[in-house]
């Protein structure tokens, strides 16, 4: 057992955990943030994607102890109160989900890809960047549409803020 401290969705948390604790287990079981999902548990499906220090990673393939001092954002940390994040809103608007299981990871991956590729990211780039996220329901078309729309909306939110 060892003690780990990190900032999760803006709050500092400190817990004593087993060295084997994966980041995803820490989030779901110790912090009860169950929005981050475990799909495959073998680093392939992307349902567990969260942001660590602003970068998307697979939380099933990281030790909680490795996140000492880091800043973690999960799907629960995206919305601003009752107002959804533009990417969440775009997924709803464009019906980019059916069962919804992959959605938290898809949205976290989408926000990351827009941050790296900009609000005008093209369809080809979006599809290539979704390499690490598997959806077994939608066939991806509406997810791609939602990400393009969400990207544009993120761009206009940023402009409005500036």
């Amino acid at each position: 057992m060892a003690t780990v401290s990190m900032t999760v969705n803006g709050k500092t948390v400190t817990k004593t955990v087993d060295s084997r604790r994966l980041l995803v287990e820490f989030l779901r079981e110790d912090l009860r943030l169950t929005g981050t999902h475990v799909g495959c548990d073998t680093s392939q499906c992307g349902a567990c994607v969260v942001h660590v220090d602003g970068r998307a990673i697979k939380s099933c393939t990281a030790l909680a102890l490795s996140c000492e001092g880091k800043t973690v954002t999960t799907i629960e940390g995206l919305a601003n109160g009752a107002t959804l994040h533009p990417m969440q809103e775009a997924f709803r608007e464009h019906h980019a989900l059916q069962c919804g299981y992959c959605t938290p990871g898809m949205i976290m991956a989408s926000v990351d890809l827009v941050q790296r590729n900009g609000p005008g990211v093209d369809e080809h780039t979006i599809r290539r960047e979704l390499d690490g996220n598997i959806c077994r329901c939608t066939g991806y078309h509406n997810i791609v549409k939602a990400i393009a729309a969400g990207a544009a909306a993120m761009g206009s939110v940023r402009q409005a803020a500036e």
Binding site: S43, A56, I57, K58, D112, D131, G132
Partner: peptide, 9 residues
């Protein structure tokens, strides 16, 4: 290599 999330780690 891999996918974006793997490349970030």
């Amino acid at each position: 290599i891999g996918d974006p999330h793997v490349r970030n780690s």
